[in-house]
């Protein structure tokens, strides 16, 4: 797990006397104990097991045979795996920036409303899709995204001739992204609102007195102040988007053809339809390596734009 170590960048701080350090260590271990135990037992252990499974030809039931790195070698040459990966990356590029931008914009707008009750109303409305049962809502959207469904009806009012969203390889991933943004932006909005509320009001007042335009105030006060939350939302959406599963399963079942078969869906099919648990585990590990790689890049880059309090 050498990747994990550099992820935590502990800011330089004055060294304390050694009894103090011992107390700190003891305290810390106590604080992390319950969570860490749970993670070790129900995440790390199964993850280690899946790493073990990935070097076998286990089908799920009978005794596994050791096959070395063969599954990994197969995966790198599997055209269906590479196409699943490209679908996933396209989806990430479509869904993540849009989702973060939309939720940030909406949160800033809501935050700028003067009437408190209006904030409450919009906050509630935008969060609504999150509180429904996802599977049921996805089935609903299957109907809305039909060629003559609600989405295209609305587009028609705007003079746009809507595509056959779920029936064409070019539009199916954007359609899934639209659904995900509709369903998921509430989470970003809540996080951004919580963060925006903690930006001291007097900073804005000072800026206004100095004659700063609203956008400048946003750019030079708001954005730096909420940058840790932007980072958080970005990371969470990235992790979610790279593992997108339920939405594609219900909306398009990976089709038409395999044009919306994402890596997570391919892993699921490999494990539970093709009964190749070993190969599925290897695929999952390759996905995890990509995820961890992206995380490390993000984490390294955050010092350039994320502003933590360093008083």
């Amino acid at each position: 797990m050498q990747n994990a170590a550099p992820l935590v960048t502990v800011p330089a701080r004055k060294r304390r006397a050694s009894p103090m350090r011992r107390q700190e260590t003891l305290m810390a271990l106590l604080l992390i104990l319950p969570s860490t135990l749970g993670i070790l037992a129900f995440a790390v252990l199964p993850i280690a097991a899946s790493l073990g499974i990935s070097v076998t030809n286990w089908g799920g039931l009978s005794k596994p045979n050791f096959v070395g790195l063969q599954n990994y070698a197969t995966a790198l040459q599997d055209p269906r795996a590479t196409s699943a990966l490209s679908h996933t990356l396209i989806y990430v590029l479509l869904a993540v920036p849009t989702g973060v931008l939309i939720s940030l914009t909406l949160a800033v707008w809501i935050n700028n409303l003067k009437a408190g009750w209006l904030c409450t109303v919009f906050r509630t409305v935008y969060y609504l899709p999150m509180v429904t049962i996802g599977v049921a809502v996805a089935l609903l959207w299957q109907v809305l995204l039909a060629p003559q469904g609600l989405v295209n009806l609305v587009l028609g009012w705007l003079g746009v001739n809507g595509p056959n969203w779920l029936g064409s390889p070019a539009w199916v991933l954007p359609a899934v992204a639209i659904f995900s943004v509709w369903q998921g932006s509430g989470q970003g909005i809540i996080l951004f609102l919580a963060s925006l509320a903690s930006v001291p009001k007097d900073l804005y007042e000072a800026a206004q007195l100095d004659g700063a335009k609203p956008f400048e105030a946003f750019r030079f006060i708001t954005l730096p102040m909420i940058s840790p939350t932007v980072f958080l939302v970005l990371v969470l959406s990235l992790i979610g988007a790279l593992q997108v599963f339920e939405a594609v399963l219900v909306l398009s079942a990976g089709g038409p053809g395999d044009s919306s078969t994402t890596v997570a869906l391919y892993i699921y099919k490999t494990a539970f339809t093709f009964f190749k648990m070993g190969y599925a585990s290897a695929l999952a590990w390759l996905l995890a390596v990509i995820l961890i790689g992206l995380m490390v890049i993000q984490w390294r880059n955050q010092s350039k734009w994320v502003n933590y309090d360093q008083v």
Binding site: G167, P256, G257, D258, K269, F274, F275
Partner: peptide
């Protein structure tokens, strides 16, 4: 199961007009 999946995906492209 895998062979039938491949076949079904390819024909699905024809059936959906793609």
């Amino acid at each position: 199961p895998e062979v039938l999946t491949v076949l079904s995906q390819k024909l699905n492209l024809a059936w959906t007009g793609n």
